[in-house]
């Protein structure tokens, strides 16, 4: 496992949301986390990225302990994150957004930008536009492209398909697979549980801050209990 979380407890103030969760992402794997609202999916993601400090447990990345590091240090090690909302800089152009994603790179980021444009050719067309003027689907792509600029080993996606039309959801999922095939591990939280399980290698089902199930995506889809409780029958 390149990214591993063991027995994580975390929350906001005195309210504990995660009551001891263990999970991991292997190299170039797609992992889906599904579960009802309030299960702690986004909290888990924020804890991994260092936006929240766990009260208990350990997170390791590439063999190093990264528990409690600040987000920018974690990003430097190769974990990038796309929040669910407010995930772009609206008054900057598309290209400037990507440049901000590469802010900490000391080397020339242009080759990487070319690769990222290769995954998102639409963005190359629109590179001089301010992101404010783009559609929801395009913004989501800008957000993902921005996070890819550092060439991360693991990409964290918080509900990448939220509030997109079904056609765009399909497009975004295709892009996620494409990103993964370029060698990036993906950990995503999804409401579109069925679709997410179909494309992922493995999945976790969270509920009330506990891990309820853990299996391959296909096995979870076939699991009757999971189907009944979390996939709507």
């Amino acid at each position: 496992m390149i990214l591993e979380a063991r027995n994580i407890k975390a929350g906001y103030g005195e309210v504990e949301i995660l009551h001891g969760i263990s999970m991991g992402v292997d190299k170039a794997e797609i992992i889906s986390i599904i579960g009802p609202n309030g299960a702690g999916k986004s909290t888990l993601m924020k804890t991994i990225l260092g936006l929240l400090k766990p009260t208990h447990g350990k997170i390791t990345f590439d063999g190093h302990d990264i528990t409690g590091l600040s987000p920018d240090k974690i990003v430097r090690r190769g974990i990038c994150y796309v929040p669910q909302t407010d995930n772009v800089f609206p008054s900057l152009t598309v290209e400037e957004n990507l440049e901000m994603g590469a802010f900490i790179r000391k080397d020339d980021f242009r080759p990487r930008m070319k690769e990222v444009y290769g995954i998102f050719p639409d963005l190359k067309e629109a590179k001089r536009f301010r992101v404010r003027k783009l559609s929801g689907g395009q913004r989501q792509m800008v957000a993902m492209a921005r996070a890819l600029m550092l060439d991360p080993q693991v990409l964290l996606l918080d509900e990448p398909s939220a509030s997109l039309s079904p056609k765009l959801v399909k497009l975004i999922f295709e892009k996620i697979v494409e990103i993964n095939q370029s060698g990036v591990g993906v950990l995503m939280v999804e409401q579109n549980a069925r679709e997410a399980l179909k494309l992922c290698h493995r999945g976790y089902v969270l509920a009330m801050g506990h891990k309820k199930f853990e299996d391959t995506g296909q096995a979870l889809l076939n699991n009757e209990k999971v189907g009944k409780l979390y996939l709507g029958g």
Partner: peptide
């Protein structure tokens, strides 16, 4: 300049700037 762009980015969204690795 890189710093000028980062300044505009931070003014747009401080939190996102931080998780993008901007100091």
């Amino acid at each position: 300049t890189k710093m000028g762009k980062a300044m505009r980015a931070a003014s747009d969204n401080m939190e996102l700037a931080r998780v993008s690795g901007i100091d």
